[in-house]
């Protein structure tokens, strides 16, 4: 048996042991706040069992294993159906980017561990009303304020911003430079003064994304994760992770039907798929 197979067996055994507490069945009928709380408890248990941050470096609190190990674990985890959705963006892109680009290593380690334990959540503040596919068109302004910065503008479609403690932000620091040269990449505190979060109702009747407004929000220069004007390349690094992540995310492939069933909680207008709708074409 290969090393990865052994690892996968170990993952399966652990997941089976927590199924009664965190499995899909345990989530049925929960309100979103209860589901989120259960998710936090699950992440903590997962971290303590040694399955948190599988492919992140040991130095920042991860397990230092390969992407193949992570995939092996996730394939088993999807079958369990625990409430990980609120942490998908957080642990998917912002946290790995912080572990890679933050210069204060002790701080990065602290944040990573807190996020892996489900204590803190990060969001990704990229898209705007006029900048979606055309990401380099972002307009949210970053203006110098002494050595530091002030941010003003609007982000849109920010997943789980309403639950987030921190976010990674792509902002325009130089409006006169060519479109993808005038951007700078920061991290920000979602509780800072001047940040307003407004959830948006989606077609499934849930509020999975938000509008986020920045009104002259103070950001220190130490919160910069790129060179000034070098934000686009860190944004590309973020999206390269996202590109591969979407292929492994829960909900992909065979398990998506049970996932949909779960999302349509009783009493929600999203509804359960009717028996025929699930099987018909």
């Amino acid at each position: 048996m290969s090393e990865v197979e052994t690892y996968r067996d170990r993952a399966r055994a652990w997941l089976a042991s927590v199924e009664p507490r965190f499995g899909a069945a345990a989530r049925l009928g929960l309100r979103e706040d209860e589901d989120l709380a259960l998710g936090r408890a699950y992440l903590r248990a997962r971290y303590e069992a040694g399955f948190g941050g599988i492919d992140l470096p040991v130095e920042v609190g991860g397990q230092g294993l390969s992407a193949v190990h992570k995939r092996a674990f996730e394939l088993e985890e999807i079958a369990l159906g625990p409430p990980t959705v609120y942490f998908g963006i957080s642990l998917g892109m912002p946290v790995p980017i912080v572990t890679r680009f933050a210069s204060d290593r002790a701080w990065a380690r602290e944040r990573t561990i807190a996020a892996l334990r489900g204590e803190e959540i990060w969001c990704q503040l990229f898209s705007e009303p006029a900048a979606g596919s055309d990401l380099a068109g972002v307009r949210l302004k970053a203006k110098r304020h002494g050595a530091d910065w002030r941010l003003s503008g609007q982000k849109l479609w920010t997943s789980w911003a309403q639950y987030s403690d921190y976010g990674v932000i792509l902002a325009r620091s130089d409006p006169s430079a060519p479109k993808n040269k005038g951007l700078t990449y920061f991290w920000g505190d979602m509780r800072a003064r001047g940040v307003t979060v407004r959830p948006i109702r989606l077609a499934n009747a849930h509020h999975d994304v938000c509008e986020v407004f920045f009104d002259d929000v103070e950001v220190g220069d130490h919160q910069r994760l790129s060179e000034v004007g070098g934000g686009f390349s860190v944004a590309m690094a973020t999206l390269m992770i996202e590109r591969y992540l979407s292929r492994t995310a829960p909900g992909s492939g065979r398990r998506s039907i049970s996932f949909c069933r779960l999302r349509g909680r009783p009493g929600s207008p999203a509804g359960r798929p009717s028996r025929t709708a699930a099987s018909g074409r």
Binding site: S127, L156, I200, R201, L202, A203, A205
Partner: peptide, 16 residues
Amino acid sequence: HGGTGVTWESGLHLHL
């Protein structure tokens, strides 16, 4: 419609 297409308000899901 991009992101707008999956909002509740757009009502495109009514057609779906």
